[in-house]
């Protein structure tokens, strides 16, 4: 078991294997995404019932919450790939970490804007410097920082390692985002869906749409990330013979 995993890890570490493997995987992920996204949107907008307090405005949740989860999920993946890049100096891990940053930034941006659009009618304000909102904004800046640092250094591989280090340090922000609503008084409410206790404060008729949308964003990220990494592989490995062969036909 361990040996198989280790072999996989090393094989995927080869740009060529990664390029082939992801090329085969992308169509499947894309189909899964289209199906879950269409189903999820239908459920969120047409099937899920009106909320007893917030009326129809709560439907923003179905794009806000999956995006927020993606912002955190992508950061974790970026940091793990960053760690692999720093310790093992694996080229593909560097590319994965760097490719994560702009996608994570996009999802975090969606989280902030949709949260603001939800906050205005419900809370009565577009923005409040409470701990949850501020730490989420900081997450966006971390993503932008990783992208900026990577762009600022000439050597692609050194740049990736520097950016990976920044990404790793920023991991400290993740528990702060998650627990901000517990540790401090905030305008943002506590967690509705609790992953570990299995207890949820959402009616099943509403939860279904949220879970489908969450799956859709995961598939979407899979397609976006793999394709971004493929582009980076082609650019950075353009002199490799297998890339040259690709261009031949």
């Amino acid at each position: 078991m361990w040996k198989t995993l280790k072999r996989w890890f090393h094989q995927l570490g080869s740009p060529r294997t990664f390029y082939r493997f992801s090329g085969a995987l992308i169509p499947w992920l894309f189909v899964a995404m289209v199906i879950t996204l269409a189903w999820g949107l239908y459920q969120s907008l047409l099937v899920a019932p009106t909320d007893y307090q917030q009326g129809e405005s709560y439907r923003i949740l179905y794009v806000h919450v999956p995006s927020a989860w993606m912002g955190l999920f992508i950061y974790v993946l970026m940091a793990v790939s960053g760690l692999i890049a720093l310790v093992w100096r694996m080229k593909v891990a560097e590319m994965v970490a760097i490719a994560c940053a702009p996608i994570g930034a996009a999802y975090t941006f969606v989280t902030l804007v949709t949260g603001s659009l939800w906050g205005k009618p419900m809370w009565g304000t577009w923005w409040e410097w409470d701990a949850r909102l501020t730490s989420e904004l900081f997450l966006l800046f971390l993503y932008l920082g990783v992208m900026g640092l990577y762009a600022a250094i000439e050597d692609r591989r050194k740049a990736a390692r520097a950016a990976a280090l920044l990404a790793l340090v920023g991991v400290v922000n993740l528990p702060i985002i998650h627990y901000s609503v517990v540790w401090w008084n905030t305008l943002h409410q506590g967690a509705t869906v609790k992953l570990f206790s299995g207890e949820s404060h959402m009616h099943p008729s509403m939860l279904k749409a949220l879970l489908i949308m969450t799956a859709a964003t995961k598939f979407h990220f899979g397609v976006a990330l793999l394709q971004s990494v493929r582009a980076r592989i082609l650019q950075q490995e353009s002199k490799a013979s297998w890339v040259q062969e690709l261009v031949d036909d």
Binding site: G55, S57, A106, F109, V110, L117
Partner: peptide
């Protein structure tokens, strides 16, 4: 009309979908 919240709900979905399409 989204129960009077159209101005908040639709831009949220529009932005989300725009980002999804862009990253595909």
């Amino acid at each position: 009309q989204m129960g009077g919240y159209a101005l908040y709900v639709w831009p949220s979905y529009a932005l989300f979908l725009a980002v999804v399409v862009y990253w595909l």
